[in-house]
Design a protein around this nucleic acid. Structure first.
Length: 284
DNA sequence: CACCATGTTCCTTG
DNA sequence: CCAAGGAACATGGT
């Protein structure tokens, strides 16, 4: 469940739990999730290292580590793909069915599980090299954003998924931001007016900020047979606060909260886009 | 069986 | 060389 807000909430959750913990063992259950695909080297690099901090960049988690005696830090980069989860669990509890990598931290295990194994763990800083600005930081400035959009003929919805434009927007928040800015998803990026670009930038920040705030106030539940960590309403039986906050995503046929017309679903670049055909028209 | 899924990368085509 | 579109990756839910 990973777009910027989900990764941010996860980072805030794990941040106080990791610093000071030492990696005593590494179990690579599925070699394809580590990069490069060399479990031996990966384990050698991590065993004995100690966590110092955890931050986020786009949809990546940045685990800051150092070896004992060495002040030279290094970073483990984590990406959750579509279905990745990371959490601490007592070493006594059974590993989940789709465990990908398990770090032995002493009393607890750090578990990275991923049903579809689209996520990654890597020590290669290139993972993060081509990311655009952080949308919630001051680095996300209007002028460069506008310039980048002017250079692209791609539909704006598709362009928002380009992580080198802005980091962290995924398929859900691309639709949500465009609805909020009242911009039609198929409009070519270069056709946005200056006013629309400005509105879009504001909408992106608002939508992501709200999602983080919403996620941060939820109780973080461990447990269940999956041993998973749930916050955003995907857990069966868990309250669905998060889904309720989405205005257009996955709501085809249901009324637009603004005008009441049915929300429409279209396919762009092989992914679903949701929008209101009335509120998101040209020249708005 | 068919279709869908929060992401990224690679291949083909123009 | 670039842009755009689609398939592939792997598994599960409806």
């Amino acid at each position: 469940m990973p777009e910027l807000p989900e990764v941010e909430v996860l980072a805030r959750h794990l941040q106080p739990l990791l610093p000071g913990k030492t990696i005593r063992g590494v179990q690579v259950c599925r070699a394809k999730v580590i990069q490069p695909d060399d479990a031996e080297a990966f384990c050698r690099a991590l065993i004995g290292a100690k966590f110092t901090s955890l931050t986020r960049r786009g949809k990546y988690l940045l685990f800051q580590l150092h070896r004992p005696r060495s002040r030279v830090p290094f970073t483990l980069f984590g990406h959750l793909g579509m279905t990745g989860r990371m959490y601490l669990a007592p070493k006594t509890s059974a590993l989940p069915k789709h465990a990908a990598v398990v770090l032995n931290l002493g009393r607890d295990n750090f578990i990275y599980e991923d049903t579809r194994y689209f996520g990654r763990l890597t020590l290669d800083p290139n993972a993060v090299a081509d990311l655009g600005p952080e949308p919630l930081s001051a680095d996300f400035q209007a002028a460069p954003f506008a310039r980048a959009l002017r250079r692209s003929g791609q539909a704006i919805k598709v362009k928002l998924l380009d992580q080198s434009l802005v980091a962290g927007i995924g398929n859900i928040y691309a639709s949500e931001a465009l609805f909020r800015a009242r911009i039609p998803p198929r409009l070519a990026a270069r056709r946005l007016t200056a006013a629309q670009v400005k509105k879009l930038r504001t909408a992106i920040r608002a939508v992501l900020t709200e999602a983080v705030r919403c996620g941060s106030t939820l109780p973080l539940n461990f447990g269940g047979t999956a041993g998973g960590l749930f916050y955003f309403g995907r857990a069966a039986g868990a309250p669905d606060y998060y889904e309720e906050r989405l205005v257009v995503y996955d709501r085809a046929g249901r009324p637009c909260p603004r005008c009441g017309r049915p929300i429409r679903r279209i396919i762009q670049a092989a992914r679903s886009t949701f929008y209101c055909p009335r509120c998101q028209r040209n020249a708005s």
